[in-house]
Design a binder for these strands. Structure first.
Lengths: 343, 343
DNA sequence: TTCTACATTACAACCGGTTGCAAAGCATTT
DNA sequence: AAATGCTTTGCAACCGGTTGTAATGTAGAA
């Protein structure tokens, strides 16, 4: 039983190349950086040698020396001890955009599984996210934690909505306007009793909720607490929240869901309870995830430009890292009319 | 206009702590590792000092010294120059599981935006994914590239199906069986003409396709090329593929979609063309993504255990990194009956 | 009292690159 | 012939930790 002898042919290093080329380590280093300081001929010789022997620069050493990592941490805010689970496709699509722009700028993307609290407190044992900056893909109910991180030294930008006492930079949609557009649309469609489902413990949700109230107030409609179902993302599923609304026995002919994922669960549950969409209830979602268009029925929803959002997040973060000041920004926000609300 | 003076209070290092404690750097290092080699009293003093001054170990330096990164690269196989876009929720759910298990094992997860080809060729300029190992979340049509990476020094495991000439380790479902289960179910439901949509240029798709043919053959049904719509994931959308099938004018009463995402697009398109599901056409999907259950109608589908899959991938990779040999593995595979196929 | 063993701590090399500065080589100018 | 300047290369320090080995101090044994 011979012990497994890992044939770890230790990788070539600069010193090896230097010896082979008969020059010094520093010359090799400069040659590989294509520095003008080294003679063109020598440079080409060394580069050829490197390619021939399939030399790969040790990024770890390089980054360490340069005190850079070219790595950006992305954290998904999740409930304290919940495992990483993005149930909402919107975040995936946002993530895709962030990833694309990071790569384009020559950075890697470290997907953190740590909860926001853990990152903020820094008490994650000996482990530590080692990166040049942080992108937080949503605020959840971690506003205070975020403020704390912002007070630290780590550059950070956040997807979400602006809050009065906020000390960090956000990029996000115009959530208040989104809420208004959705609610106004339902009113114009003739809805008399409009229910709302979502999590307004988050800043984004809160603004959408405010927009909803604003429009109801303008239309002279008193809010009905029974039609407002607060979703605790940490605890119950979208479906459970919808079932709660249905179980309450209160009737409604319009439903504003604070995300498309909720809207899908809602439409499904409504159907199961013998109600048609949009026949009995007109439904509006939020986000315009790619599935929204192909759901049955297709979903009327408030569009959030994740492509632009990702780009802005990355741009702002890199500027922040460079020591610039950056301002929070709001993306244009529109409603997209589809079948789920058209009678 | 004073130039922005970045107040970069340079972080505390071990030498600083050492000076403050009146001991040497090495003693601090050992104290922070809680090594028996240093006197308990000294140890506690240093640890207290570290906490007091909020000292944070420089992981970059440590990892460099130890030649480890505790980072695993995850690459999503995508079309050559396509930007990172996981349109299929299944991958997100798999990713979630991988992430969870990596973190649990004390590793970070580096999401690469590089195409598989780029990683394989290593010719990604000076940039290089710097990690202890690679998890590839799908084979796509990159079988050869994967073999090439496997010949290199980077430990790697792959989500997908086994191929005859394969030199890398895979974890995946029993795709042939999945294809058989789906097709047999449709036959038992009374379907006479069963169409199939998917990408069988990938190993996974290929086995499902084989399973489909196998069962048809057993039932004495000759395959009909017109009912087989090959989806080129790189080029056209799920929807386009479905429309192609519909446009062909050939009739069918059963439809086997090689993913739930395709099934959703298919059901939507069928509805638009005035056909009901499951009334006119019984549809079966693949993956059992979480939305499948709540789609309208809910989708009959072949379940793939991504939770277990993620765990196996991570376990195998870490073992591989430790120098062990590991074998490819197949997850249990079952069909889940729902409304889209029940008449 | 001297020697040995053990517990603590310090010294210094090392990981694999980057870069400021000095040195060497050569041509041109005075 | 000596001084000057430019190009090209090498030397050595440095980044912030880890760890093998030597040195120191102290107690117990001979």
């Amino acid at each position: 039983m011979t012990p497994e002898q890992p044939i770890k042919k230790s990788a070539l290093k600069m010193t090896d190349l230097a010896r082979m080329a008969g020059v010094s380590k520093s010359t090799v280093s400069r040659a590989l950086q294509n520095s003008e300081l080294v003679n063109l001929e020598t440079r080409e010789k060394i580069q050829a040698l490197a390619k021939e022997h399939n030399y790969r620069l040790n990024t770890q050493a390089r980054n360490f020396r340069l005190k850079e990592s070219f790595t950006i941490g992305v954290v998904i805010p999740s409930a304290e001890n919940a495992r990483w689970q993005v149930t909402d496709p919107f975040f995936l699509e946002l993530l895709g955009s962030i990833s694309f722009h990071l790569i384009e700028q020559g950075h890697e993307m470290l997907l953190s599984g740590l909860s926001l609290h853990a990152v903020a407190s820094g008490d994650d044992g000996l482990r530590k996210i080692n990166c040049d900056g942080l992108i937080v893909a949503g605020q959840a109910d971690c506003h205070e934690d975020l403020n704390r991180i912002a007070d630290g030294q780590t550059p950070m930008v956040v997807w979400g909505a602006q809050m009065p006492d906020q000390r960090y930079c956000t990029v996000g949609g115009d959530n208040r306007r989104g809420g208004e557009l959705a609610t106004r649309h339902l009113l114009e469609r003739g809805c008399k009793r409009i229910a709302i489902i979502g999590d307004w413990a988050t800043p984004e949700g809160l603004w959408r909720y405010e927009g909803y109230h604003q429009v109801l107030a303008e239309a002279g409609i008193a809010p009905e607490p029974a039609l407002e179902v607060m979703l605790d993302s940490a605890r119950d599923s979208h479906r459970q929240a919808v079932l709660r609304l249905l179980a309450s026995g209160y009737t409604f002919d319009g439903l504003f869901c604070l995300s498309d994922a909720i809207a899908m669960a809602a439409i499904n549950a409504l159907n199961e309870h013998g109600m048609t969409v949009p026949g009995d209830v007109a439904v509006v979602g939020y986000d315009d995830i790619s599935l929204a268009r192909y759901y049955t029925p297709s979903i009327t929803t408030v569009y959030q430009d994740r492509e632009l959002g990702g780009r802005w997040l990355v741009d702002k973060l890199l500027r922040l890292i460079d020591g610039e000041r950056v301002e929070s920004a709001m993306l244009p926000t529109e409603i997209i009319l589809r079948n789920s609300s058209q009678r």
